[in-house]
Design a protein around this nucleic acid. Structure first.
Lengths: 123, 123
DNA sequence: GCAACTGTACTAATGCAATAATACAGTTAC
DNA sequence: GTAACTGTATTATTGCATTAGTACAGTTGC
């Protein structure tokens, strides 16, 4: 069962996209693997304090992308092969780093300063 | 006059927030300085292909924060002192790096891998 | 078999982002 | 002074995100 312990709700991004991203990142990291059970729509919505329909929207998009399989009455399961995982990793990292590099450059940071900051905030 | 040459519209974030962020980052970087003229609401909306009200919303928030001064009939001007610039720099960088470090960690990257990626994508 | 879960599918209502179309009063350039 | 700009304000409409409530059919554990 996939846990949402380190899920932190942010604002500025739709909740259903945050859920989507959380699962994709977990899959890219290997924390979520093929065959893993997803929490039910009702369980996760209660856990996150959001509406079941919001979770359903995220799950539906994941299913449309082929990342999860759902059957009426049964828990939804992750469907992940090596090709998919590799694609996810590539996509997510490229998006993230591109956006970050752009914003750093826009703020006038040198590469060295950016690296130093990343180092400091890593925790 | 502040130019918006390198403004790239992204989706997932409200347009008025993107405009707000663009100006704040410019101010933090020193590319935008005290007394600089802002493009008029109508000019910028035409340039970006959005509604004048969307630009107005961003400008209004900047004015509420004391970062710009507007007088009916005249162009709006940037209001930036050293204290404000220092505050902007600190706020923007902290937000950015925190979000990025979280997402990298969620994807299972080590600090060294993150630094290497940042290096690769810098340009 | 039955209760408690599961996915799925609706409808309705609310709030925010964005567009559209005006209107009015103040400033600026000629 | 006048035309062309400027900021400001208002109303209406559209679409998306989110909540709320309900319903139904399939699966699972006992």
């Amino acid at each position: 069962m996939i846990g949402f312990e380190d899920f932190i709700m942010a604002d500025g991004m739709p909740i259903y996209l945050q859920i989507l991203l959380y699962i994709k990142r977990g899959a890219a990291a290997g924390a979520i693997v093929d065959g893993d059970e997803l929490p039910s729509r009702r369980m996760l919505s209660a856990l996150l304090g959001v509406n079941p329909n919001t979770v359903q929207k995220a799950y539906k998009m994941l299913e449309d992308e082929g990342l999860i399989a759902s059957h009426a009455g049964a828990k939804s399961l992750m469907v992940l092969d090596e090709t998919t995982i590799a694609r996810l990793k590539k996509e997510l990292l490229a998006d993230e780093v591109r956006a970050m590099a752009r914003s750093f450059r826009q703020m006038g940071l040198s590469k060295e300063e950016a690296v130093a900051l990343l180092d400091a905030y890593w925790e």
